[in-house]
Design a protein around this nucleic acid. Structure first.
Lengths: 354, 354
DNA sequence: TTGAAAGCGGTACCAT
DNA sequence: ATGGTACCGCTTTCAA
């Protein structure tokens, strides 16, 4: 007969439940885990006792024995960037579906923190890891080769030594440049992210490709390197303006920077899109709420998260033998108010940024 | 002599290190944990061997033995809301300082998920928990009373049965209303959040108080209940407009809603702040990047995170006997472009929202 | 200063 | 269908 005992200090264990239900601890374990080898009657009695005693299985004990934690980790470079939050939501959702916990880690893009994240795998804190890395994972290469469990990298990989999901961001940048031309821009500026990161060099490459592919004579493209934040974009645009650079179309390496840049441009008396058309990349939700709404190139964040989670759970599902797989998603142009075509293409000459 | 062995499948344990270093596993444990009772010489040898074998302590085993995980959890209602991210960053930072891991959980405001978060405590997955709850924790009351470890609630608590930090959001709402009057508004509208949540009822109360306290005759205050998202604010504003409601000042229950509302107002041909002054609450970073910049009432998110973490770590530091403490922070008005005073107060009569 | 051994709380094998 | 019991890998007495 189960009775509602309030135990003092000691935690209630499987043994307590066993005693209360007059069975062995082994039986309790089987019953609570829904083994078919236990009679319905016994299972129900055990369940009642467990509930009455408010039994909660000790996670550490179980995972020590089973070598499984039912937890995965997601390491992002910056928890303040909405695009990673987007990925986190998707991954979280899929993890929940599979009854896994999600450990969210913000690495602040520091390699030491990234290595630390990989170590949680070795320490058996988590069963698998999805990591978003901006360094082309080159710094992680060594750690990655000896890693102690399934890892999926979102981002670029020197060699494909583990599953990874990328986006054709060079193509995305080209898409953006072409769009700026299409809406009537002729003098383009390009605010890139920090040098040495893979996203930055890919975007650079995409811009170059677009220029080469264009029939028209090459318009001057200017660059300013800043970090991937709103403040970075703001500073970069101010810098461009201070140098007296003349442009009527601006591509920023991501939306956060574009939002910062728009603010700087407007503070400088420039109208968007009449004087300068602005486009970002990522297509974060905020794009819809700026004035004017910010055009962007979607880098399919949610989709990348979904694919990464899928790859990871494939591995966790036992598919550990097969070779690393690489998935690449294609960017999609999202034109909005910040790049609406000039009504009067001829009026372009009137522009000026003062 | 340590040698760089590449073990096959089996994980390398403390025993492997012990063998390699010709000591017992106990000694390895002591040495690696920096016990002073181990000779320097031995410690260094052990450390060399551990490194050579790439030994990583098994977290489950250690925490099973010590009953400590060095992990805390933070449960937020919605990971998509920047204000919770702000709190998460602060908590993360403090946790890192103390060499604790942070488990971030998004409850989507579902009581079942909140209870689940509490259970991770009982399961010994984490040592402590900070939870942001909108329900006034009344649904959690029962679970909270029997909780198996230190908990800090950010938000309202029916009875102060555990540490908690709140913000005087009623006072904040009053602050906002007074500000709208101060800048020359006379007909106010108020878009509140979902009914039944503590933040909503507090804001309502604050608005009422401000009205009562005002000498002037009471201006009509209108309300629309929506959820705490940009979309919610957008819908609410559209609704107000569609009903032909006349107002020149708008308070939204949070910034996300205010941003959505501004978009709807502008789409309706209204100028901000000339036709309608708009103010939100929370003071999220995005406020600075809207057009015009959104006035807000800071609810001190970062500060609340910091205090909560502090309370929690006090408990984890052994201070478990003392009574629950309750901390309340005061809101701060952050006036920006969306509520700049009318140049010509008389011109108010000209306003109209079509 | 170091080693032997007893757990921590489950799970899973092997009996019965 | 159930019970006995040997682990999982580490920490921590207690002895030597």
């Amino acid at each position: 007969m189960p009775q509602s005992i309030r135990p003092g200090e000691r935690r209630v264990t499987i043994t307590d439940v066993a005693k209360a239900a007059n069975v062995s601890s082994a039986t309790v374990s089987l019953a609570l885990n829904g083994s078919p080898r236990i009679s319905v009657e016994t299972r129900q009695r055990v369940e009642r006792c467990a509930r009455a005693l408010r039994y909660q299985p000790n996670h550490a004990a179980a995972s020590l024995r089973t070598q499984v934690t039912r937890t995965i980790a997601l390491a992002v470079p910056d928890i303040g960037n909405p695009v990673y939050i987007e990925i986190a939501r998707t991954v979280q959702q899929i993890a929940r579906q599979r009854a896994y916990h999600l450990h969210l880690i913000s690495t602040e893009s520091q390699p030491s923190e990234e290595v630390h994240a990989l170590e949680t795998l070795a320490q058996r804190s988590v069963d698998g890891l999805i990591m978003i890395s901006l360094h082309g994972a080159s710094a992680l290469d060594a750690s990655l080769r000896e890693v102690a469990g399934p890892v999926v990298i979102i981002g670029h990989l020197q060699d494909v030594i583990c599953d990874n999901v990328t986006v054709a961001s060079a193509a995305g940048a080209a898409l953006a440049i072409q769009h700026l031309w299409a809406v009537g821009c002729s003098a383009l500026a390009f605010v890139n992210g920090p040098a040495g990161t893979w996203p930055s060099s890919e975007r650079e490459k995409g811009v170059q490709n677009a220029l080469r592919a264009a029939d028209q004579t090459i318009s001057p493209v200017l660059r300013a390197e800043e970090d991937f934040t709103t403040e970075g974009g703001h500073r970069a645009a101010q810098h461009l303006l201070a140098q007296g650079v003349c442009f009527d179309g601006l591509l920023c390496a991501n939306d956060l920077m574009a939002i910062g840049a728009m603010r700087a441009l407007r503070a400088h008396g420039l109208r968007i899109p009449e004087d300068v058309a602005v486009i970002g990349m990522d297509d974060i939700r905020e794009c819809q709420f700026t004035t004017p709404p910010l055009s962007s190139v979607s880098l399919m964040a949610g989709e990348r998260g979904r694919l990464a989670a899928q790859l990871l759970f494939d591995r966790l599902g036992g598919d550990s033998g097969t070779l690393p797989r690489q998935l690449t998603v294609s960017p999609v142009l999202m034109p909005r108010g910040s790049t609406t075509p000039r009504r009067t293409p001829a009026a372009r000459d009137e522009r000026g940024h003062l």
